[in-house]
Design a protein around this nucleic acid. Structure first.
Lengths: 185, 185
DNA sequence: ACCAGGCGTTCGTCAAACCGAACGCAACGT
DNA sequence: ACGTTGCGTTCGGTTTGACGAACGCCTGGT
């Protein structure tokens, strides 16, 4: 399998995604790329089959390698396996730490302890947009993540994924438990 | 810098290159991709600005990841810096070896010693098609390669590049010399 | 309240991408 | 010698991508 996805919709999504990231308006992007607003509007709406030159101009205007416009969005699921990150010795204190995720000012981070038993799969409906979940497994094994992109994590492993899509937690061993940090703004 | 190259000509070249590689005719490719021969003909000739769907169909028909059609041809110039390759202890013998390039059955490999003095830049016209040059610097520094893609190599460094395009050798230090292997079938 | 400016969408027009058919060319087969 | 087959190119005709203008919608300034 190489690029399994449909070309049109992917581009439409990529276009919108990258423009959001750049934080500019549709009109502004069209201006920079030397295109008509209408053209870009139709492209982002998925109706339309842009020429290479048109897409190229957009890539340049967005300052991104062209190929990113034809890729599916990068998976927002990130996993850090236990021991795979450099440990940092805390200054003055007598312990080592591993930075998994830095706090973002203006966001709340609620901390939970999640205890799960095998068989009981817990499905969670999407939370408010923009929320992100972080989980560190303390014991056992857990399968977790967006329903279409589950990952398996064990003791010491860290996983993070968007909380505003359907996702689930499922213990694979008895006595599994984890620390869950729910982040929202 | 990301994708410095012009989009149109690159695609035209890529298209032709990949079709050659696949060993099929223009008409055949057009048939598989569901395009008119005329369309493909114009694309390969560089006149034309294909739509995404058109290019996509070609990528699928060629069985290659779409992105390869928008990339410049992979540079045929390869450099191995001294000490950057794992050394292999020869069985039974008391020395270490570094494999730089494996011989291909049915090809001849002529070995030369190349002595160069600074200032004297030696331009070589293309040799017979398919020939490849390999060079290992023994002493000094040499700038070598296709005229539009020169690389600088020092003692122990290895470089290989196609011999069927215009290329040149130029010493950068007095007393430079190298071993040159000319490969042709 | 009003208007000015920016946003994203929708509409009609025009150029061009894509098509199909015809062409010239070369290599075979009868 | 001739007809056949496949190649790549060139020629009008039609679909459609890209354009510019106009629209409705907000937000903020006077």
């Amino acid at each position: 399998m190489q690029q399994p996805a449909p070309p049109l919709a992917v581009i439409a999504a990529a276009l919108r995604r990258e423009r959001d990231r750049a934080g500019i308006s549709l009109a502004e992007l069209a201006r920079r790329a030397g295109l008509a607003k209408s053209t870009l509007s139709q492209l982002e709406s998925g109706s339309g089959n842009p020429s290479i030159e048109t897409l190229w101009a957009l890539g340049v205007a967005l300052g991104i390698p062209f190929s990113r416009l034809i890729e599916a969005p990068p998976s927002p699921v990130r996993v850090v396996r236990a021991g795979s990150s450099p440990r940092v010795r805390s200054e003055g204190a007598d312990f080592y730490g591993t930075l998994l995720t830095a706090g973002i000012p203006g966001t709340r981070r609620d901390v939970y302890v999640l205890e799960l038993e095998p068989g009981a799969r817990r499905e969670a409906d999407p939370h408010i947009p923009g929320s992100v979940e972080h989980i560190v497994v303390s014991a056992g094994r857990i399968r977790v993540g967006p329903v279409d992109e589950l990952v398996e994590v064990g003791p010491g492993d860290y996983a993070t994924f968007p909380g505003d899509v359907r996702h689930s937690y499922e213990a694979l061993e008895p006595g599994s438990w984890a620390v869950l940090v729910m982040e929202h703004r």
